[in-house]
Design a protein around this nucleic acid. Structure first.
Lengths: 225, 225
DNA sequence: TGTAATGTTTACCAATCGGTCAAATTATCC
DNA sequence: GGATAATTTGACCGATTGGTAAACATTACA
């Protein structure tokens, strides 16, 4: 039952003999992924080293590799764990709701995520920026499908005159980019705003501005055009 | 006059003896920076290797290091060369012009740059995303000053009722993020749009949407509030 | 055309990279 | 408490990293 003569942790898929996960396994994998999030989000996949992650996680390198057999496996596990949560706000986008409040609260939620989970945002930003070599399937599959679905909702709103006629995909892109900007380009935002305006209040300012921009920009044309 | 006993190329600042740059120096430095842009923009600083750059540039590693003594020096030279051009659109932002046309053409210009110089966009995105360890000074200095200046223009427009009252800094951030998104997150945009809509026409679609969004979102409140 | 300055390459270095191994340690369960 | 399985570690491996030394080739210029 052993693989290549070496015992493997329960994370690795294998025969049904040891399905139960140890308490230690839960804890350590948690610890490792937490450290991996720190490192990968700060340096990207190629720029990160197992040693860095090991140090942040407070354990030896071979110990990491006992739980995740390769650097890629760690990255993969991290992506898998984070992706679902990351798409939650878009999934919550409700077709039945009022367009204005739906868009408003989508912006709010995305902005809150940029504030509360900047590492997750940067993890994906790094990945996509460098050509998404590890998440191409997720982008073309689940992500595209979700966006297609929500785009249809937006298109219907536009058609019925509840919002202005516009390209729903580019609308979604613009909400993604403006909100995630505050996580991904945080140091730039801070540098430009200076000490006085780069405190926590900047998220309130950003929310106010973005809501104003999108609500105003999407308000249906009074001429009915 | 030699440094550490080894001859140095004219790129390295030194005594005034050889101020002239050879034709070969011009060409090779050009070649190297072109290759460096390819590699750094695709993998970030840490994730890039001198060997990669050497291969793309079509020359040997020691030959690269003859022109730029370290990896950092190459990166620095590249940033210096590209930064000025990159800020050109914002610099062209004219206080005397009409707000609507100024904003419209700023968006156009930024979008054109995202289309025509995606590597430059990703170079900075990578750098900022990873904490801007090499360009912190540029962000806090020249960039901040330029943005401060243009923010004042926008604030004046808002005050005089030419556009809606809004935070000029967040307005600038939102134009940056929405336009650069098409360069930095290109693979994601393509993945979501699918084959049929991810051709060159997507920049026209993006321009149309963004102009609609910003012009509509910034139109002064008819109630005069 | 000779020669000094400039440019290029091969061979190499120490450090770090991702990853392995076997031995030692700890937890689990009868 | 002892056997057994799970966990942890130090020592190590070959490959790659950024960078160097010095010999060799080419260019510019008198």
């Amino acid at each position: 039952m052993n693989f290549k003569g070496k015992r493997q942790p329960v994370t690795i898929p294998r025969a049904a003999k040891t399905l139960r996960r140890t308490r230690i396994q839960e804890e350590k994998e948690e610890q490792i992924l937490e450290a991996a999030l720190d490192v990968f989000s700060a340096s990207g996949f190629r720029g990160s080293t197992i040693d860095q992650i090991a140090e942040v996680a407070g354990m030896s390198k071979p110990n990491l590799l006992y739980y995740f057999r390769t650097k890629e496996a760690m990255h993969r596990a991290l992506i898998d764990r984070v992706l679902y949560t990351w798409l939650e706000p878009l999934r919550a986008f409700d077709a039945e709701g009022n367009p204005e409040t739906e868009i408003r609260s989508y912006i709010r939620r995305k902005l809150e995520m940029a504030r509360d989970f900047p590492r997750e945002s940067r993890l994906f930003a790094n990945e996509v920026l460098q050509g998404a070599p590890h998440i191409e399937d997720e982008l073309k599959g689940p992500l595209k499908e979700l966006v297609d679905e929500k785009a249809e909702v937006i298109r219907a709103w536009a058609k019925s005159g509840k919002i202005v006629k516009c390209d729903p995909y580019h609308l979604i892109f613009s909400i993604w980019s403006t909100t995630q900007h505050y996580a991904d380009f945080d140091v730039q935002v801070r540098a430009v705003l200076g000490q006085e305006h780069s405190g926590e209040g900047r998220f309130e300012d950003a929310a106010r501005f973005l809501e104003q921009l999108f609500i105003g920009g999407l308000r249906p044309d009074p001429l009915g055009g």
